[in-house]
Amino acid sequence: MTSPLTATAALVTGASSGIGRATALELARLGSSVAVVARRLDRLDTLVAEITDAGGTALAISADVSERDQAEQAVSTAVEHFGRLDILVNNAGLMLLGRVCDVDVDEWDQMIAINQKGLLYTTHAAVPHLLDAAKDGPRQVADIVNISSLAGRTTFPTSGVYSMTKFGVNGFSEALRQELAPDHVRVGVLEPGKVDTELDSHNNAEILADIEKNFGGFTMLDPHDIADGVAYMVTRPAHAAIGELWVMPTAQA
């Protein structure tokens, strides 16, 4: 029996841990060749070995997608290696929380660079190849999935700039969806609630204590829950598109 993503190629950013890692594993399980992109090459090599050992195909690409030349080169390397690109998952992200009056402004620059510029650079480089895949590939469709956040739907004290970046991702995704839909490139945004990943770990002790107070009492999502959502979005038949998917812990609903 043919897997639903057989003969496709995908690129996943932020693939060294958490949602990106789980998504790469799931897309490979479904038959896609996967380029995994992040800065930590040692972790990518371990992921590639895991995918290969399970019978899949993967390529590790060390890159900081917030740097335009590195994002463009990552896409070029993936296309040169696999000969095509059918799926892009923009997952790389950073969450640094803090009150506007207290925060280090350099942290804002870091979030904007990764959460927005990295997504823009990678998407811009990938779109021509996705258009080719949709036109000439056996599926007659290609996919972009942008990982946003519930913080892109609502906000709270300390999340101002993080929310700004994710509201921006949602707005960009909607405009791009309308631009590319006529050419059968589907653009969807997936907004996770609280997921058990390393995302919190870059924050200071006070913020971590607040996170524990607010979220420590219920079962968080596992990264594979989000990977399952990505897989659902990219395996719909060519005539069906998922523009937005909102996934959260039941206790957070």
Rank of each mutant, 00 (worst) to 15 (best):
M1N: 14
M1G: 15
P4E: 07
L5C: 15
L5A: 11
L5R: 15
A7C: 05
T8Q: 09
T8N: 12
A9Q: 04
A9L: 07
S16A: 12
S16L: 00
S17H: 08
G18M: 10
I19C: 09
A22H: 03
L25Q: 09
L27P: 10
L30S: 08
G31R: 14
S32P: 13
S33H: 14
S33Q: 10
V34F: 12
V36Q: 06
V37Q: 06
A38K: 07
A38S: 15
A38Y: 09
D42V: 13
D42E: 13
R43S: 14
D45H: 07
E50V: 02
I51W: 06
D53S: 15
G55R: 12
T57I: 11
I61Q: 05
A63G: 05
S66D: 06
A74E: 10
V75W: 08
S76F: 10
E80R: 14
H81V: 10
R84I: 08
R84P: 14
L85Y: 13
I87A: 03
V89H: 13
L94C: 01
L96T: 04
G98R: 07
V103I: 12
V103F: 04
D104Q: 12
D104H: 10
V105H: 09
D106W: 05
D106Y: 05
Q110A: 15
N115S: 09
G118F: 14
G118H: 08
Y121S: 03
H124E: 00
H124W: 02
A125H: 00
A126D: 06
P128C: 01
H129S: 10
A133H: 14
K135T: 02
D136H: 13
G137F: 06
P138W: 09
A142T: 00
I144G: 06
V145S: 02
N146E: 03
S148M: 01
S148F: 04
S149Y: 12
S149G: 09
L150P: 06
A151W: 00
A151P: 02
A151V: 00
T155P: 09
P157T: 01
P157I: 00
V161S: 00
V161Y: 03
V161M: 03
S163M: 00
K166M: 00
G168N: 02
G168W: 11
G168C: 07
V169F: 11
F172E: 00
E174M: 13
Q178C: 05
P182N: 02
R186V: 04
V187K: 09
G193I: 02
K194T: 14
V195S: 02
D196A: 11
D196E: 11
D196G: 07
T197E: 02
D200Q: 10
S201W: 03
N203F: 01
E206G: 12
I207V: 11
A209M: 00
A209S: 06
A209G: 03
D210Y: 01
I211S: 07
I211F: 06
E212H: 13
K213T: 11
K213R: 15
G216V: 03
G217C: 05
G217T: 06
F218T: 03
L221N: 06
D222W: 01
P223S: 10
P223N: 09
H224D: 01
D225L: 09
I226M: 06
G229L: 01
V234E: 04
V234I: 08
T235W: 08
A240H: 03
A240V: 15
A241S: 11
P249F: 10
P249L: 14
A251Y: 03
